[in-house]
Amino acid sequence: MSRKRTLLITLDAFETLFHPRKPIADLYAAAANHYRFPRGAPPLTPEKIHSAFKETFKAQSSILPNYGRDAALAGKYAGPKQWWSEVVVDTLARASGSREEVPPHLVNTLLNRFASSDSYALYPDVDEFLRWMTTVKVFEGGEFDKIVVGVVSNSDDRVPAILSSLGKRVGPWRAPQYATGKKPPRIRGFEPSSFYSRLAQNPPPSSTWLEPSGKGRVQVPVFEEPNDFDLVITSFQAGFEKPKREIFAAAKDAARAMLGPEYACGKWVCVHAGDDYVKDYCAARDAGWDAYFLDRDGQGEHRHVDRRKRIRSLTDLVSVYLKKYSGHPAPGELAELLRSSNRALS
């Protein structure tokens, strides 16, 4: 019996999947001025906030790295909520030069705004990439028995909520807490602790089959709306930040746990793509993964990267890996299968 083969594709989040709708300093300034902070003073400008935010973020990251994870594990800190609250307060205090207390409702407004589509938008190529991956996931045959798509991000645990608010289906799998013992720690973040469960929550495929017109008899299993992202690994939950290879190991461990022992001991091809040369491309490559440097505008500084490893769009990953799916049809046929699958599910 041949060993199961799995393709694991992970992507960076910020500036790879989504980006701020407006500059962060603009959003801070708008919120502060809406709540008339500070009182009796001229409106805060994005320029002042930009400078203050950079200083505050750097200092906070030095004092409490990885969103205060270690202090949160020790029960001495409230995790990323407190971390970001302090960043907001210190940024506005620096920018205004005021000793006036920053109103709690102003802080909460910014925390909530940066946890949803209110402040973030997807890049145009993301939806197309995910449509292709959905098609490849549900098509029977090809080089891989299973395909897992995930996110690996140096961030707190708001990433799943942001992706969900942007209309993406996000699975429950997160970083296995192997680095801190057998029992998963109850670290306080934005997500409820139930997300540490290792129970698979995705329904199995149905036995319905399709026959796309004009293509002969092609059997395609119809799934119950597969997740766009099967797993999300954040540095806060994993306990490691890129470029540490341990965060990539956490992603693979989560995928193995999701698929079960039949696949865990099989053959794996692991791929990562992101816009940061050091934290995405070099880090994944050094972890033994197949790494791709995302350079959407073609103006990246690292032009020495092999052109075969530099992509201009996430859909380039589809083109690269379709060539390795010996059992998959041509892209045009896959597009027809995708349309047929969507019609059956609607």
Rank of each mutant, 00 (worst) to 15 (best):
E15D: 14
V220E: 00
R339Y: 05
G150L: 05
K54V: 09
A179P: 01
A121S: 15
P212G: 11
L92K: 09
D230G: 06
D295H: 11
Y178W: 14
P38D: 00
C282A: 11
S213T: 10
Y281K: 11
P42G: 09
R69V: 05
D316G: 10
W173M: 11
E86V: 05
F223E: 10
L17G: 00
R198P: 08
G181D: 09
A330H: 10
P43N: 02
D297G: 14
V271L: 05
R198Y: 04
T109D: 15
P43W: 04
L64C: 04
L163Q: 02
E225I: 03
Y321D: 01
F114S: 10
D90C: 10
R36L: 11
D70H: 09
P38V: 01
L130A: 01
N154R: 09
N342K: 13
P42E: 06
P23L: 07
V102G: 06
Y178L: 14
A238Y: 01
R296V: 04
K76I: 02
P20W: 08
F18M: 13
N342E: 14
T6M: 12
Y321H: 11
K76N: 12
K4L: 11
R169G: 07
A31L: 04
H304S: 13
A41V: 06
L106Q: 12
A29M: 02
V222W: 02
F240T: 00
D316K: 05
A71H: 09
E225Q: 13
S197M: 04
L166F: 07
E191S: 07
G68N: 08
A264H: 05
A32N: 03
S51N: 03
D70Q: 14
G327S: 00
H272M: 12
K267L: 13
E86M: 12
D228A: 05
D275H: 12
G167L: 07
L317F: 00
T16K: 02
V278S: 09
G274N: 08
V89F: 05
G288H: 03
K48L: 13
V89C: 08
P192C: 04
Q299M: 12
P221L: 14
P204V: 11
G171K: 07
R21P: 01
R158K: 13
P192H: 10
P42V: 04
E101A: 15
L322H: 02
T10D: 02
L322D: 00
L44N: 00
D125W: 08
F223P: 00
T56F: 04
K252G: 09
Q177S: 15
A273M: 14
S235F: 09
G141K: 04
S213Y: 06
P80A: 15
F18E: 02
E101I: 06
D127G: 10
W289I: 03
T135Q: 06
S313Y: 03
T208C: 02
P184V: 07
